[in-house]
Every structure is written in C-alpha cells, then in structure tokens.
Design a protein around this nucleic acid. Structure first.
Length: 365
DNA sequence: AAAACGTGGTA
DNA sequence: TTACCAAGTTT
C-alpha cells in the first residue's frame, strides 16, 4: 500500500463528501469531547439534537463541572448508556480541579479521564490537537478488516492491534484528525454492512474486494442471545400526584426515575405482580384499577414487555418506604418533565400526557 | 476475555 | 419477528 497515495485519495473523498455536523465547525476540545462521547454506540443522526441542547445548557467544561447530576442525566435522557453522562460530569470536575479548567492536551491525561478509552482519547488528540494518534472505532475496524481482508476477528486484541498499527503507518501528520474522521465517514457512508464499493475512493487497495470476500468481513463473534422478560409497572395516583422513585446507584439505569414495578414471576398475573412489587418496593397496599397500556421496548440484551396499570391505594393512604430506590415521592404530572426516565418509562409518561382520559384521573381524589 | 451497559432504526 | 447494527468503556 502506498501510504501517501492512500491518504490523498481518502482525504479528497472526505473533503467532497463529509457531512456537515455542528461539532465540525470549530474543532474545539470540549466540543469534540462531547460529540465523541455522545456518538459512542449511537447513530450520528440521533446525536445532533442532543448535542445542540447539551452545548446550550453546558457550553464549556466549567458549566458542566458545576452542574447537578440530575440535570446532566435529564439532558442525556433517551440516548442510553447513561454512565457516559455521569462520567462526563466526573471528568469535567477533574479538568476544573486538576487542570485549571483547561482541557488537557497530553494523550495520557486525556486517556485517564473517566469515560475516555483508547478510541476517544485518539479522537480528541487527533481532531482537536492535530496529534497523529489512531482513533479505532467499529467503522475503522470494518474498513480495515476489508482493506486487509482480515481473517481473524477484529474484536479481539490481536485484530485491533493490527488495525491500529496499520493506521499509524498511514496517518498523515498534517491532517491526522481529518484522516481519522475520513476513515470513520467512509465506514458510515460507503463501507457499510452492505457496502457501495463503486463509490469507494480506496477500492484499488481493498484486498477483500479483490478476493470477493467483502461481505464476509469483518469476522464478528457470535451474537448474544436476547432474553424476553415480562414486567408490571404501576402508576399510583393520589390527590393528583404520581409516585415515582429514583433508581439506586448500583442498579440498572442508576440515578434515573421510574414508576415502581418489577418482573412478573411464573404463575403470576400482571395484576398480582404489581400488587406484590408495590408491597416489596414501597410497602404500600395498592389496587391496579385500570390497564393503561402495554409497552414493548429493548435494552441491552433484553426484550421487555411492560404491563402498565393505573393504581389507587387499596386501604387508607400511607407513606411509602423506599426499599429498592435511593429516594422517591409523589409528584405533580407537570413535574415529571424535569426527571430523567429510562426510555420505556418515558414512553408511559408521554402516553398518559397525550391521552385525554388522564386529565381527569390525575386530578382525582 | 467476556459481560454489562440503552436505544431506535433497519432488513 | 428476530437479529443486527451505530463515532466504546468499564469491570
């Protein structure tokens, strides 16, 4: 492979085909950092709206470092992998307290920040500071698995190391950030799962194209099995307020809010499950008086069917005891807007908000 | 090394 | 409908 020629072909294509993205206007380190964290495991089209809202609310490291986690999570609501947001808050505090509020320029300092791994450290140092560091993400792995016709898995340490070494031989010192972004852009627009090889600017270098194995690359590990689970969730309404609780730090969706509920056990009806869960989680005796909706959603390796019920106190009202949550309480419907919910729970809130029958129910007894 | 961590879109 | 995928990191 002729290094200079490869880079020239690739960068010419990138200059002509790159998408206009908000963080590409001025590659300032904070903006690059935010965009790179948001883009992890997430399609770029979904990132843009979150990015704009985030930069308006947290325009620089200092404003982020001063923020409450609650506010940070609210701005991440719906993006998933919420540890990314919590780690950004932690990292901002490190930058303010340990680097005088200036984004560190040294690779090792950047790599040491919470939530920044090899890929993101390489992306920030190359894009924001022009340093010739590889930024090897899934796009880069896919592109080079095809260019090199790699027969080993690209997800293992060996495959990844091989790609990283190859990038180091190709990355130009004068446009390191553009080179890394160009490979990723190629992987996102052309060298996709079903690639458009006719459009590829570096097709002449592609060994798997020559070998006819493009669709067999990259070699990926066997996929994980999806677990199907059934849940019951109860919206307890009392004096116009709804009971919600904040999830514990060591649980799934730490720090996010939800309506109490849980898994439906064998032989249980959804109604029985929600009565049991309310007793276990908040020590309240409730009646599921009406089915609201069944919400189906996915998270990590689970496929969830969530049966949602409107609930009332079964007997005399009493104070909840939060056995499974960090805190909680009865909130006004309008107040739900300021809390971050997992996607499935947020869909339940939105359904109730848009369903006129709940206007009255929310203000009942 | 492998599993956990979210979500919505696509084939 | 199931399965995979999309700018990974942490434990």
């Amino acid at each position: 492979m002729i290094e200079a020629e490869f880079s020239r072909h690739l960068l010419e294509w990138y200059d002509a085909n790159r998408r206009e993205l908000p963080w590409r206007k001025t590659p300032e380190p904070y903006a690059v950092w935010v965009s790179e964290i948001m883009a992890q495991q997430t399609q770029i089209d979904r990132v843009v709206g979150y990015y704009d809202r985030w930069m308006k609310r947290f325009p620089d490291v200092n404003s982020l470092a001063c923020a409450h986690e609650e506010d940070v999570l609210k701005h991440w609501e719906g993006l998933g992998y919420y540890s990314r947001a919590r780690n950004m808050l932690k990292a901002a505090i490190v930058i303010v307290q340990g680097h005088g509020g200036e984004f560190p320029t040294d690779y090792a300092d950047i790599r040491g920040l919470p939530g920044i791994g090899e890929y993101t450290a390489g992306a920030i140092t190359s894009i924001a500071f022009g340093q010739p560091e590889p930024a090897v993400d899934a796009n880069v792995l896919r592109v080079f698995a095809r260019l090199l016709n790699m027969e080993e898995s690209v997800r293992g340490a060996k495959g990844r190391s091989r790609v990283e070494k190859q990038v180091r031989t190709l990355i130009p010192t004068d446009r390191a950030g553009d080179f890394n972004q160009a490979i990723m852009e190629l992987g996102a627009l052309v060298c996709i799962k079903n690639p458009d090889c006719e459009q590829c600017p570096v097709l002449v270098y592609c060994k798997s194209y020559g070998a006819g194995t493009v669709l067999q690359r990259p070699v990926l590990p066997a996929p994980k099995k999806i677990m199907r689970i059934n849940m019951a969730t109860g919206v307890l309404v009392h004096e116009g307020r709804l009971l919600i609780q904040k999830r514990k730090a060591d649980d799934v969706w730490p720090g996010l809010w939800e309506f109490p509920g849980g898994g439906i056990e064998d032989g249980e009806t959804p109604e029985q499950a929600i009565i049991r869960e309310y007793m276990e989680e908040v020590e309240l005796a409730i009646d599921p008086v009406e089915k609201i909706i069944t919400i189906v959603y996915n998270y990590t390796r689970y496929h969830v069917t969530m049966h949602c019920f409107l609930c009332r106190f079964a007997e005399e009202p009493s104070e909840p005891v939060f056995n499974e949550a960090a805190e909680g309480g009865f909130m006004l419907p309008a107040e739900l807007e300021s809390y971050a919910f997992p996607a499935g729970q947020r869909r339940l809130v939105e359904f109730m908000k848009n369903d006129r029958s709940f206007d009255a129910l929310f203000s009942d007894v």
